[in-house]
Design a protein around this nucleic acid. Structure first.
Length: 493
RNA sequence: GGGCCGGUAGCUCAGUGGCAGAGCAGCGGACUCUUAAUCCGUCGGUCGGGGGUUCGAGUCCCCCCCGGCUCACCA
């Protein structure tokens, strides 16, 4: 008999007996973790404590007139003992309850002769009859595709997965606590935007029927948050779901969670300090440690120290150090191409790129993955940074930095461009790039320029990819391991 | 998009041209201290989909779908 049919038949028999297999509530007295503490403290001598527990049955070991079972809730599990002479309606348990069912039990503690804390169940109640069989009890669920498509099944079958996602939640909570301590105000800005902006990315497009207009899912909350700084909110942040219409790989999901914060009267050096301190605080609280195991580019196990200060390295010095190309002397596209060839890149593929793009390729190919120790790469070519102030001592550069840890880009920050006329000129340049086919050029936002005309104070801005921060602090190898429901293709077959 | 690897029972996996298998789960039976319970018996298949080669295809060939890794693209 097919297992699903067997479970449906049991469900039918339960209903015929007048049992509600999907009741409305259950009063539990303790979580299983609390109950374990209670039972362990009580010892043998005390009056046995009575508990009412609820969870899922993850294993049942049936004997003729007695059964052991494992009851598991979010954080812990405990053994149950049911017997024909002490458990009410033992026969129903024996015949109609399956592994995977949600149940509530009431009983008292005892310790088995092998020393395991166990609840002698006097009563049990079905809380939800499971009609689907569970993954194999010993090997669990191994199929990565099923884990992601049916995350509920992954969470049922793997308590470590539950703990990992709880840890991700706690990391976000700690980020909020850190920013709250420093006077940042959490705000919500539009997800549906008439003009998208704040990053170089292609958007998802949608349509509002009543307004008869196109809207975009945001690629960033940046321009709205800076409007709030103009409005006099000194320190604001948003933990935003953002959407970028681009490829999927181990570090990119089309929908991800971006922390953006803006601090009045600050610049990018303040943002570096804030980044260091925020990561230090969160790591210490969530891991109890500032060190992380990681793998260097040549495959060695290394230990990363997240403690401040992080290394500070300019973009050009990074290329000099890791790619062996002194680009401070490279002023033209041809010289950049020659430098790239010298570093071993294939020049034919680079023919159509600008010199900034050639540098970018050099950086991506030769530098990024080697940035294992926490490092701020700072002072990017100005042409890549249309929302950033020029560098105070070198107009070819912009005051922008990106933090890298374990070869992974964690975010993006800058001294925010506040000159409205210069910003308008930057938008004009972006329009030219869009007309020449750059699908990631920033669209012009005239109202944003108007906001700047009212006066944006000196402002430091920081964006942190929270999914990547969670990856870093949990050791996850793929962003799809820290996003509960990552985007998947329609299942084939 | 390219390369490599994978998709076989509910789950975990064997099966490299000749009868589609094992363990777990399920079902029936025995069993009141088990914990990957044990013992006896038993059911269970669109071998990812389609086409081809062959007397014969899970296995070989072609196309397609899904996933993983990787390279490219992309912040």
């Amino acid at each position: 008999m097919d297992e699903r049919e067997a479970r449906r038949a049991k469900l039918q028999r339960l209903r015929e007996k007048g049992v509600d297999p999907y009741p409305h509530r259950f009063d539990r007295s303790h979580t299983i973790a609390e109950a374990r503490r209670l039972g362990e403290e009580a010892g043998d001598d005390a009056e046995p404590a009575r508990v009412r527990l609820a969870g899922r049955l993850t294993a049942i070991r049936r004997m003729g007139k007695a059964s052991f079972a494992q009851l598991e809730d979010q954080d812990a599990q405990i053994q149950l003992y049911l017997t024909v002479d002490k458990t009410e309606d033992f026969q129903s348990f024996k015949e109609l309850v399956d592994r995977g069912d949600m149940v509530g039990v009431e009983g008292t503690f005892f310790v088995t002769k092998t020393g395991e804390l166990t609840v002698q169940a006097e009563r049990f109640v079905l809380l939800a009859k499971a009609l689907q069989p569970l993954p194999e009890k010993y090997h669990g669920l191994r199929d990565v595709e099923t884990m992601r498509r049916q995350r509920y099944l992954h969470l049922i079958a793997d308590s470590e997965a539950r703990q990992l996602f709880k840890k991700g939640s706690r990391i976000v909570l700690l980020v909020r606590a850190f920013l709250d301590q420093r006077g940042f105000v959490e705000v919500r800005t539009p997800t549906l935007q008439p003009i998208y902006g704040g990053a170089a990315a292609r958007p998802f497009r949608t349509y509002h029927n009543e307004l008869k207009r196109d809207l975009y899912l945001r690629i960033s909350p940046e321009l709205y948050l800076k409007r709030l700084i103009v409005g006099g909110l000194d320190r604001v942040y948003e933990i935003a779901s953002v959407f970028r219409n681009e490829g999927i790989d181990s570090h990119h999901n089309p929908e991800f969670t971006l922390l953006e914060l803006y601090q009045s009267f600050a610049d990018y050096t303040d943002m570096m300090k804030l980044t260091e301190e925020m990561v230090r605080f969160v790591a210490q609280e969530v891991n109890g440690s500032l060190t992380l195991p990681a793998r260097s580019v040549d495959g060695h196990e290394v230990e990363i120290d997240l403690g401040p200060p992080w290394r500070r390295l300019t973009y050009l010095d990074a290329i000099k150090e890791y790619a062996g190309v002194d680009v401070s002397t490279v002023a033209t596209r041809d010289e950049a191409l020659a430098a790239a060839a010298g570093a071993g890149l294939t020049v034919t593929e680079l023919q159509e790129l600008t010199w900034e793009e050639v540098l970018g390729r050099l950086f991506d190919e030769r530098v990024e993955r080697r940035l294992v120790e926490p490092t701020f790469i700072m002072d990017y070519p100005a042409a890549l940074c249309p929302l950033t102030k020029r560098h105070r001592s070198d107009p070819r550069l912009a005051e922008r930095f990106e933090p890298f840890v374990a070869g992974m880009e964690l975010g993006n920050a800058f001294s925010e461009l506040s000159d409205p006329e210069y910003q308008a000129a930057q938008f004009a340049l972006q329009r030219e790039r869009a007309q020449s086919g750059d699908e990631e050029a920033h669209p012009t936002d005239d109202d944003y320029v108007t906001a700047l005309e009212y006066g944006l104070p000196p402002t430091g801005g920081l964006g942190i990819g929270l999914d990547r921060l969670v990856m870093l602090l949990t050791g996850a190898a793929s962003i799809r391991d820290v996003i509960l429901f990552p985007l998947q293709r329609a299942s084939g077959g």
